[in-house]
């Protein structure tokens, strides 16, 4: 369960990215966060990933108050998350399989188990054949799918995705969104930031609408 209570985030330069945000996301829920560019979607995900700290209010994930989480506990918290970027970062001196296995490697998973689980994750996104390719040789769509495979390889409790289909064409972005729905059906809490409202209507999931950092709409699909 993820709970925001009156969360605000101000940056030093005076920009107010999030304003008095309060909501609750249940376990195994799938939620879209939508809004225009600069609405605060990415900041919201950063607050959940404990990349940013709120200026006011508190973020609680499964009973843990992230604002009071000691620095030494942050790695173990982040291991429960899977994060997909719009422009995925890779270790360019390692192949696709090693990149996908990175979240497993950092927790000391045996090498054979890393290979097995990273291969399974790549298979899931249809890229097992590119396991030994270097990331730079992949197309944009392939890189996005590798990023997703990396985010799911360690079986996270929560999957955060920031504009995961931002650089992709229609069919491929639908395929990727279907993957997220599939993970959610397996019991993963999925939170996707997107400005493309077409996905919300297609997948029929709960959606938050942000405007200038404030939550202006939070309705389950059924209520529309």
């Amino acid at each position: 369960m993820i709970e925001f209570s009156h969360v605000s985030k101000h940056y030093r330069e005076g920009h107010e990215a999030i304003r008095d945000l309060s909501f609750r996301i249940e376990r195994e829920e799938m939620v879209f966060i939508t809004g225009h560019s600069g609405a605060g979607k990415s900041t919201l995900l950063k607050l959940i990933a404990r990349i940013e700290q709120p200026t006011r209010g508190q973020v609680v994930v499964d009973g843990k108050n992230l604002t009071r989480l000691p620095r030494r506990h942050i790695p173990s918290y982040r291991r429960r998350l899977g994060v997909v970027f719009q422009d995925n970062k890779f270790l360019h001196d390692r192949d696709v399989l090693e990149n996908v296995g990175l979240p497993l490697a950092v927790r000391g998973t045996p090498a054979s188990e890393i290979r097995k689980r990273a291969s399974a994750a790549l298979d899931k996104v249809g890229l097992l054949a590119r396991a030994h390719a270097m990331p730079i040789t992949l197309s944009g769509g392939e890189q996005q799918r590798v990023g997703i495979a990396r985010a799911i390889a360690h079986r996270p409790d929560v999957l955060l995705a920031d504009e995961p289909t931002g650089n992709l064409d229609g069919d491929l972005s639908d395929t990727i969104m279907d993957l997220f729905r599939e993970f959610n059906e397996y019991g993963v809490t999925v939170i996707i930031a997107t400005h493309d409202r077409r996905h919300i209507s297609r997948l029929q999931k709960r959606a938050f609408m942000l405007k200038d950092g404030a939550l202006i709409e939070d309705r389950p699909w059924d209520a529309r």
Binding site: P75, Y77, R78, R79, V83, L91, P103, V106, H154
Partner: peptide, 16 residues
Amino acid sequence: RGEIELMKLVGATDGF
């Protein structure tokens, strides 16, 4: 730096 940021994001400890 980029590699370290990525490792921290996927839960690598400072020791690792």
